[in-house]
Design a protein around this nucleic acid. Sequence first.
DNA 1: CTTTAGGTTTAGACGTGACTAAATCAGGGC
DNA 2: GCCCTGATTTAGTCACGTCTAAACCTAAAG
Lengths: 227, 227
Amino acid sequence: MMLSDVMEDYLKAIYQLERGHDDRVKTSAIAEELDVTPPTVTSMLEKLEDRELIDRKKYHGVTLTPEGETVALEVIRHHRLLEAYLTEHLDYDWSEVHDEADRLEHHISEDFEDRVAAALGEPEVDPHGAPIPGADLEPPQQPTGRTLSESAATDRVVVREVADDDPEVLSYLSDHGIEPGVTLEIREVAPFGMFTVMPVGDERAEAVSLPSEVARHIRVGEEVPAE
Amino acid sequence: MMLSDVMEDYLKAIYQLERGHDDRVKTSAIAEELDVTPPTVTSMLEKLEDRELIDRKKYHGVTLTPEGETVALEVIRHHRLLEAYLTEHLDYDWSEVHDEADRLEHHISEDFEDRVAAALGEPEVDPHGAPIPGADLEPPQQPTGRTLSESAATDRVVVREVADDDPEVLSYLSDHGIEPGVTLEIREVAPFGMFTVMPVGDERAEAVSLPSEVARHIRVGEEVPAE
DNA sequence: CTTTAGGTTTAGACGTGACTAAATCAGGGC
DNA sequence: GCCCTGATTTAGTCACGTCTAAACCTAAAG
């Protein structure tokens, strides 16, 4: 099955929107995710349906078929392996890595994928803390824990994952010492949803205030669950 | 200037055909190089001419403008840096590296290029012995020396460059110990243009016979000129 | 039950990069 | 100097992925 880069992008987007608990993924959601117009999405969905990569009910959104999901997971595996490789071996910061991986993910061979995975020692998470699908392309289990925006003041939490969205936000967080693995002390939760947190263990760290839109993208867990 | 991948491929092809001493590059040569039909080439040449990347005289071929040459050199720099990186850091053999680099060369950022070059220590040649254009994108000087097919029996020569064409030929040469840097003793030149050579210094090496089509792609120099 | 607002699909168009078939040009042979 | 062969360009088509404008469906409000 020869798929275009664009088709792969659509399948990846649908996969990620499905995980965002939109159970059936709507045309408009895909359009927004990929920054195209809804009619463009409709016509691509017709092609993906012809190839049996999605199930579609007109006017009621789509879901991935198992084959579609496998393609999406392959693309995501490429993306996250590349992110990990770039940070480990080419001195990128985890906050800079997303765009480069997005451009390369469609253009690497199976062989390249294998060699990168081997060079990294078959990693299980990428630098943002997101799980890397295995070579078997089985769906990784849903992340556990909660988001920072669901946490309460005085909690101590450890950052598990920072969703790789806006590079500016990412580098802001990176600059302020907030990254996967760091322990955070929640100092204050303002009524309008502003979270003030303090990275623990870094002498030079200062308290950082984060609006809930940002806090929602930070997934956290209990402190020292295992080490 | 936003160029498509395909445009970059045409410019690279024209550059390489120009170096192959076709002074003006003909439509049919480009068509063969890129495996498309001549009308397809003509229509692309019109676009490249509109953008002032080539000089075109209808029915008499094209040459690159300085801007077109710069684009070609940028693509070639990407290609050769990637080839070098893949062999140095991802355990590829020099004979396997071409296709992977061809797919990636259009999709890496300036930043990636810089980091790869730094990781390699600003290399000057790729694993096939071809010069890597510098970051300034000045044209590297033409290779010196001669090809194996221009050499005579009883010569001892050192392999400088093996032009990266057919991967099967490359891995054959690689398997028989013929690669850049190796010294070759020319045992025999048969009248129909068959070259029999012996890699020097490798105990397990055996004599290898090469038709002149292959010998023409092996560039050689005098033995131990500097070390 | 009807209306309506908003999301979705249809219809029609465009640019890119490819093709085949046909017309045209250039240069060598006579 | 004319003609012919082979290369090149023109003309017309197609698939892909995008768009805008218009038609259409769904679901919620009244």
